Amino acid sequence: MKLLVITCLKEYLSDVAEIFKQGNIEVFSTSDIIGHRNGASHNILEDWFVSGGEKAESIIIFTFTSEENVAIGLKLVKQYNETTKSDFPIRAFIMPVDQSV
C-alpha cells in the first residue's frame, strides 16, 4: 500500500478527481490548506505557495491505494502538468505505508 499526496489550487479538484478515476483510485480525502513562507524565493514559479500578502485557495488530496494505482496516478499528474500550461502545477508525491492498523 502507498500514500499518494497531491497539492494544488482548489479549482483543480475536478481535474484531480478525473485523474484518480483514470488511475482506478476510487476513494480519496481532501482538506483545505494555507501555505506560509518565511523567506523570499528567487523564482516564484518553483514555489509551492504564494509569497507576500497574496493568497491562493489550495487543497491537499490524499489516498491510500496500491502501488500500481499510485504509479498510474503519478504518471497522469505528470502528463496533466505537461499539457496544461499553468503557473501553479499540480504537485504530487508518494509515501510508502510500512504498517497499518
Rank of each mutant, 00 (worst) to 15 (best):
S31D: 09
I61K: 03
L45S: 13
G23R: 00
V50E: 05
A71S: 15
I59C: 06
S29I: 01
H42K: 07
D32I: 02
R91T: 02
I72Q: 04
I90A: 01
G52S: 04
D47F: 06
I90W: 02
W48A: 13
S66V: 00
L13R: 03
N24V: 00
V97C: 07
T84I: 11
N43D: 15
T63Q: 03
K2H: 14
Q22M: 09
L3G: 01
A71M: 04
V50S: 07
K21S: 13
V70K: 07
A40I: 08
Q22I: 01
L4R: 07
V70A: 14
I90M: 03
G73I: 00
K21N: 11
S14V: 05
N24F: 06
H36E: 08
P89Y: 09
F49G: 05
R91E: 01
G73Q: 00
V97E: 04
I6A: 10
S66Y: 05
V101Y: 10
I60C: 02
F28Y: 15
I61G: 01
E46Y: 04
V101E: 10
N43W: 07
E57W: 06
G39S: 11
K10E: 14
E68A: 13
R91P: 02
S31W: 10
E57A: 11
F49Q: 02
L9Y: 06
V70P: 09
G53P: 13
S51G: 02
E68S: 12
I34T: 15
F88Y: 15
L3A: 06
T83V: 06
G39T: 14
H36A: 07
K75Q: 11
V77F: 01
A71G: 08
N24I: 00
I60M: 11
F93V: 08
F64I: 12
D15A: 12
T83K: 14
I34N: 10
V70Q: 06
L13I: 06
F64V: 12
F64W: 06
S58C: 13
A92R: 03
D47T: 15
I6W: 08
G39D: 06
F64Q: 07
K85A: 05
P96R: 04
Y12M: 13
K78S: 12
E54K: 14
N24D: 12
E68V: 04
I61D: 00
I19K: 00
R37E: 14
S58A: 10
E54L: 09
T7V: 14
E57C: 11
L4H: 07
P96E: 10
L45K: 07
I61V: 10
A40S: 15
F20C: 01
E57T: 08
D87F: 09
V16S: 04
D15Q: 06
E82K: 05
K2L: 02
K75C: 06
R91M: 04
I72A: 01
E67V: 00
V27C: 09
E54I: 08
H36P: 03
W48V: 06
V101W: 07
N81G: 03
R91F: 02
V70E: 03
E18Y: 07
F88V: 04
P96Y: 03
N81F: 05
A17I: 00
Y80E: 00
G53A: 08
D87N: 15
R91Q: 02
E57S: 12
I44H: 08
F64C: 10
F64R: 10
K85D: 06
Q99V: 15
M1P: 15
E57Y: 07
N43P: 03
